[in-house]
Simulated scan of single mutants.
Amino acid sequence: MDVLSDVIALMRTGSPRSARVEWRAPWGQRFPSVPGSAGFQVVLRGSSWLIPPDGDPIPLSVGDVVFFPRGHGYAMADSPSTPVAEPECDPLDDGLGLFASASIDGPTDGPVTVLLCGGYRLDQGRAHPVLIELPDMIHLPAGLGLQTELRAAVEALGAEIQRPRLGADTVVASLLDLLLLYILRAWFEGEHGQCSVGGWAQALADPGISAVLDAVHRDPAHPWTVQELGARAGLSRSAFSRRFGELIGRPPLAYITWWRLATATRLMRESAAPLAEIASAVGYTSEFAFANAFKREYGVAPGRYRREICPA
């Protein structure tokens, strides 16, 4: 798996949630802060205003995407002056189903706005630094060259939620994962990502460092050496170590160790494989060496972690 795919696989837990909502003006809705989550809003039709807790309201038009990597609260309304209603339930409540479609009329026959909204449960204990460096809010205006694949995912997701057909649960879940990946890709590949984010945006844009990260994420069990990684990056051993540390924030082998153990936690959550098998899958020659490294990183032995953090 590549870096962004791995970030999603590592952090996302449970099923994402989404809804297609038609609002008739005047309308206003508050979306509360949901720690341990990420959320998005996409304008499919009409226009609306994003009202952040701090700062000025932001006008949104068709095709605009707003993403909140850390679940910060905000409000949406047809006008900055419209009162906003408080939510009646947790937007990520598992009892609400994978997706929903609703039409909410205002007290008058005002213009209609259609929003596609959704959220993802994230495991904050396994936060990858690529997400930690993101700003609290990402706004991708449609007029600034919104990527074709992101627009296609938005349109497909909106259509699937509005008119569910056979296999809709699988289709919607897959499209939500695609949407999240496309949002991150659009941010990191765009000018705003390059200017606003620190080392990771530069690392993903650097051909040599990106190639190294890709190789490590695709094969964490390989016995990587700094010399081999430097050769992949097209740099000397010392130049590579210096460049990697500047962008990633830790030495190459330290990052590999961290990533192997983070991958191990995901494998323990997603499978019943024996610890010895998981240790081998992430590059440890013995379960004993794996257990020692895991305890240094997480403060508990892997067996205890599996029992307490990954209940059956």
Results as ranks from 00 to 15, higher is better:
Ser48Ile: 11
Tyr74Pro: 00
Asp54Ala: 15
Ile58Pro: 05
Gly106Met: 03
Asp54Arg: 13
Leu116Gly: 08
His72Ile: 14
Ser48Met: 12
Glu88Ser: 11
Leu116Gln: 03
Gly110Ser: 06
Phe67Glu: 15
Ser81Trp: 12
Pro111Arg: 15
Leu115Lys: 12
His72Glu: 15
Leu98Ser: 00
Ser101Glu: 10
Leu116Tyr: 03
Ala75Leu: 01
Cys89Thr: 10
Glu86Val: 05
Phe67Pro: 04
Arg70Gln: 13
Leu92Lys: 04
Thr113Asp: 08
Val65Lys: 06
Val66Arg: 01
Val114Tyr: 06
Pro69Lys: 12
Pro87His: 04
Met76Asn: 10
Trp49Tyr: 00
Gly46Arg: 12
Ala75Asn: 04
Phe68Asn: 05
Cys89Leu: 13
Ser103Ala: 13
Thr82Met: 06
Val62Arg: 14
Met76Leu: 10
Pro107Arg: 15
Leu115Glu: 10
Val66Cys: 02
Ser48His: 14
Ser48Glu: 15
Pro91Ser: 12
Leu96Phe: 07
Asp94Leu: 10
Pro53Thr: 15
Val112Tyr: 05
Ala75Asp: 02
Leu98Thr: 02
Ile51Glu: 07
Leu92Cys: 03
Ser47Gln: 14
Tyr74Trp: 09
Pro111Thr: 15
Gly95Pro: 09
Gly110Val: 08
Asp105Pro: 07
Ser81Met: 13
Leu92His: 02
Pro83Gly: 00
Ala75Gly: 06
Ala100Val: 07
Ala102Lys: 12
Leu115Ile: 09
Ala77Leu: 09
Thr82Cys: 05
Ala77Val: 05
Phe99Leu: 01
Ile51Asn: 00
Val66Asp: 01
Gly110Pro: 01
Gly63Glu: 07
Thr113Ser: 03
Ser61Trp: 14
Leu50Tyr: 04
Asp105Asn: 09
Asp94Gln: 12
Ile51Asp: 06
Pro107Gln: 15
Pro91Thr: 07
Thr113Ala: 00
Met76Ile: 07
Leu92Trp: 04
Ala100Glu: 13
Ala85Trp: 10
